[in-house]
Design a protein around this nucleic acid. Structure first.
Lengths: 250, 250
DNA sequence: TCGTGACCAGATGAGAAATCTGGTCACGAG
DNA sequence: CTCGTGACCAGATTTCTCATCTGGTCACGA
């Protein structure tokens, strides 16, 4: 378990990596440069992160973590935020506000290079998948999502719709680029596709909130743990503890 | 105005180009090879198509033309096919059945290379946009589409949802890859997002069908005209007749 | 114990030379 | 005269070579 000063150092490394990747793009950022910006030696980076690719994965995961916090805060503030349409809306806005996450969702090759592709973000995908399954199950049981479609199809629909709004670039009206409008349109689409008509029952909302928050906390914890887990030092092939993504890939 | 034997020759060229592009991918197919497969000389290809890029655009446009015919046939068979949800469903299935169109919608770099990118398919986009505008306007006037969203937002929603279902790859259940299921899910999504609840009024349907068919015929005609238009022979800089896409690009 | 930077192999990039190919056009057939 | 052709050319692309760079390691020193 890393002590505080080590965590701080890890954060500084992540800060440096995040800043540099935004400025120069994944391909051009060298570990040495990251180390220099963090004010440490190159080898030290590898005391915290198993590989270059994994380091930048962690940058992305840390950003995601901020988004998770935003979503949970919204739910705590207003229980209706647990509904898929609203989750999607908030998620969309949160992503648009975070250039690195935006690049990830848009598969921006310029900025993220190979990181944007297959394998890289699969872990996040998986987590999101499990999360959706749990939460949808819960929402359906409490009448907060429809049951005219089976749950897998609902996951597929919600996933595809989000993919669409993230990737679809086209003028909305003439001068679009207003995330609010796009987010609202997406929210409307998801709402009408999988949520029941009428206002949600406040009691049902209150009933699901704790479980939803708990599932988010679990993901949050997994992300945080993955980020500040230090590489298994010397001994041979590092064991793949937990369901965490392999450090390198390809 | 090309005579019959010339049209046949143009078709043979397009056949050859389509076959080769499917087998080798856009990047590797040379004009000379296309000519050889069509049993003609290289220069003759340029008697029909202004450039390499334009030739392959025409291949794509011819495929689209088949799809348009499929959609109009469906409408003639059953008027409910004019509804956006059903149009999208049929369109999706038609695209999946046509590898080249599929590659275009999926932006398959392997198969279509630079053709898959910007500019290339913009013409088709534009046409689709205008089409959508006309048809949505009509459908709204007859109560076959909702009016709780403005028409531009509806265009955006329908476009984004389609983009999403075309691009979202992810296991639906475990072994998906069943286009029917995906198409149905997409249709459901569009239906609930922009169509009114309940069964459509048969009279309203009958009323819009002719205009919709007419708009499709207009697009069909534009496509067909663009495909067998011959390049303006010698004289200087070729004028950009009609709103057709520039032959080359970038 | 923990941090470091010199070190290595393999990846990557720059540059020159050779090859390929889109597009043209003078010519010859009909 | 019209129409089809393939030799031809310039520029794009590929290949090959060599030099540099960089991810990752590890022996050493604090």
């Amino acid at each position: 378990m890393p002590d505080t000063s080590q965590r701080e150092r890890a954060q500084r490394i992540l800060d440096a990596a995040a800043e540099l990747v935004l400025r120069w793009g994944y391909k051009r950022v060298t570990i040495e440069e990251v180390a220099k910006h963090a004010g440490i030696g190159k080898g030290t980076v590898y005391l915290h992160f198993e590989s270059r690719a994994w380091l930048f994965m962690c940058v992305l995961m840390r950003e995601s973590l901020g988004l998770v916090d935003e979503l949970t805060a919204a739910i705590e503030r207003d229980a209706t935020a647990v509904l898929p349409a609203e989750q999607a809306r908030l998620g969309y806005l949160g992503v648009q506000r975070r250039p690195l996450l935006r690049a990830m969702f848009v598969r921006d090759n310029e900025l993220l290079g190979e990181l944007a592709h297959e394998g890289a973000i699969n872990p996040v995908r998986e987590w999101k998948g499990e999360l959706a399954f749990e939460q949808f199950h819960l929402l359906r049981e409490h009448g907060l999502m429809r049951t005219d479609l089976d749950i897998d199809t609902q996951k597929y629909v919600v996933g595809a719709v989000q993919t669409g709004f993230y990737l679809h670039q086209s003028a909305l009206g003439s001068s679009d680029a207003d995330p609010q409008v796009a987010a609202t349109a997406m929210s409307h689409t998801i709402q009408s596709a999988v949520q029941p008509p009428g206002s949600p029952d406040p009691e049902a909302l209150a009933a699901v909130v704790p479980a939803v928050l708990a599932s988010y906390q679990r993901v949050r914890a997994s992300l945080a743990a993955a980020i500040d887990e230090r590489p298994s030092k010397r001994p041979g092939p590092p064991d793949n503890r937990s369901g965490l993504p392999q450090r390198g890939f390809e």
